[in-house]
Design a protein around this nucleic acid. Structure first.
Lengths: 149, 149
DNA sequence: AGGTAATCATATTTGAAAAATAGGATTACC
DNA sequence: GGTAATCCTATTTTTCAAATATGATTACCT
């Protein structure tokens, strides 16, 4: 059985790309071709991944020869949750949580809604507890947790 | 954009069915037809949902006329996480976390693996903090948390 | 100026899995 | 023996992620 509750490849690749841009930041723009070579993701796919990140203001781009991308902020100012939400839209574990009241006619009486809301909160709190810099360091900024193995 | 990170309908329906069985438990077996009428899920779909729950030992069944299903344990002995994992297989947010070392050749050096492991732990801890009885009560058993709205 | 190498924009294809349905076999009560 | 349920397996339908394709636009560099 393949399970659900999975982050998309775009979400995972976006994080890896952001790490790559952070690691190789020397002030110049970094081409997707370079990222592609290092990360093993096709340039064409990276072009798609870059769109929501740019739209969110997380990346600055330069067109033309010697063009490319670079971060708009220092890595510690990116919450990993921001990157994921830019790619995934949201991290709600069930569609029932959307604001649209048409989604589920049972939402008023549903006994499980608070449970799902809590799960959403736990997930968002966790991913917002990491910054891009934390991932670059391969370490965890959350004081006193034991998630590292 | 439709987002990922979603629990399947089978997972959601399984929880609702278990709540329904708990709420209507009077010692007799409860037919899927009854559950279907109350929950608005087809009998045929419920038949599929029941399979992994029975296999996990969470339900007892009775065939034939007046047959049906009932819980094998009192509701407070079911962790919601157990129900979800029975349906979803696991709650790992990325395939990279599977034991199979062939899944990702970068797993040895991947800077994001500890991050994903932590997310998996947070999710499992949360869903294991709720019991079926909590959902029946529409309340939250975790002492001192504020997930309820 | 013109070649080149990049981003940008949009569309299309592919593949796989979730979601739902279908048909019939088996069981057990009454 | 009729009926109403579970059980079993297969199939269809639908949706969406994943990946690819094509070409336009931009800007550096010689």
């Amino acid at each position: 059985m393949r399970s659900t509750m999975k982050i998309s490849t775009k979400g995972r690749y976006a994080i890896r790309m952001m790490i790559d841009l952070a690691q190789h930041d020397n002030g110049d723009y970094i081409s997707l071709k370079d990222v592609s070579g290092r990360e093993g993701i096709t340039v064409k796919y990276l072009e798609q991944i870059v769109i929501p990140l740019s739209r969110a203001g997380y990346l600055r781009s330069q067109r033309g020869n010697n063009g490319g991308y670079r971060l708009t902020k220092p890595p510690h100012e990116y919450k990993v949750g921001d990157i994921l939400r830019a790619m995934e839209g949201n991290l709600e574990p069930v569609t029932c949580l959307l604001d649209d009241p048409n989604v589920c006619p049972r939402s008023n009486t549903c006994a499980t809604l608070p449970f799902w809301r809590g799960l959403e909160k736990v997930i968002n709190d966790y991913v917002d507890g990491y910054t891009l810099q934390d991932l670059v360091d391969g370490a965890n900024s959350l004081a006193g947790n034991d998630y590292m193995i």
